Computed example of a mutant assay.
Amino acid sequence: MASTDAHHRAAVLGSPIAHSLSPVLHRTAYAELGLDDWSYDRFEVDEQALPGFIEGLDGSWAGLSLTMPLKRAIIPLLDGITDTAASVEAVNTVVFGEDGRRTGDNTDIPGMIAALRERGVDKVESAAILGAGATASSALAALSGLCAGPVTAYVRSAARADEMRGWGERLGVDIRIADWAEADRALTAPLVIATTPAGAADALAGAVPVSPGTLFDVLYEPWPTVLAARWSAAGGAVVGGLDLLVHQAVLQVERMTDIRTAPLAAMRAAGEGALGVPRAV
């Protein structure tokens, strides 16, 4: 177990970072696990400042969480990355070995899978993705093991369309591209993953079908989103951004501390408390 004096610090880096719930989740895990000599902080770090920050870390550091815009910028500064991180060229977790080796990982992808499986979604025949940013590539990677048939991505530009085609080919996913103007058609898919910024999918709420499938909306604030609220009202299953955040944080805690099982329920409750709003929709 890595709870020694040499490895007891961790933090989340990004810009902006003040809104991050990661400290709440990780500190809750440490308290539940009795890791009294562990601390977890947040640091405002952009791409320019990242190399200097990394080089300034001493042997007390066990790991880092990375958020935007650092998930790709961190890769050249590492000694290696896992196959999962390499599959989408994005690292959200760095684990420091006893020898100082820096290994990058991606817990967003298995976190998505765990969040869906928690709601009973183990396999779907087809799926739709709203958006084509970095989170959409992680969604595609998650769907590579969950979706038996095609995945349709609804995008706004030709450049984004090309990117999603590339990711689909790389990940072995049967990807179809559709224009954002037709995004209301996405909502009939058995699984819809919304990866768009706050407010971008609100106008689709009026197109929610009578018997919707499962919606995975990666936002956690504001919550519920307009789309998630309408989806739930129609009787569909909803997986939220807090579910993803908690599941990926559980995996980060386990990797950084070398403890097999992190306290999922306590971490979720802490996240709900920090947001101060009911999570059910």
Rank of each mutant, 00 (worst) to 15 (best):
R170V: 00
I113Y: 07
A186C: 05
L146G: 04
A159K: 10
I175C: 04
G145I: 00
A183I: 01
M112L: 15
D174Q: 05
T152A: 07
L191E: 13
A189T: 11
A159D: 12
C147M: 09
W180A: 07
A132T: 05
A142C: 06
D174L: 08
A153L: 12
V173Y: 01
T135R: 12
R119S: 08
A161V: 00
T195E: 10
I109A: 04
M112A: 11
G133A: 10
R156L: 08
I129K: 02
I113V: 14
G149Y: 09
G166Y: 03
L116H: 13
I193Y: 14
A127C: 13
G145T: 04
R156V: 03
G172C: 00
R176N: 10
A148Q: 11
D184Y: 01
V173P: 00
A148H: 06
R185S: 11
S157N: 06
I193F: 14
G111M: 09
D108N: 12
A198M: 15
T135Q: 13
V124T: 11
A203R: 01
W167T: 01
A142I: 12
V192T: 13
R160N: 14
E182S: 12
A127F: 10
G133I: 09
A139V: 12
A159G: 10
G166E: 01
P190I: 01
A134W: 03
A200K: 06
E182A: 07
L116K: 14
A127Q: 13
W180H: 10
V192R: 14
A183E: 04
A139R: 10
A194S: 15
Y154F: 13
S138P: 05
A134D: 06
A115R: 14
A161T: 01
V121P: 15
A134V: 12
A134P: 02
V155A: 03
T135N: 15
G149F: 09
A183K: 02
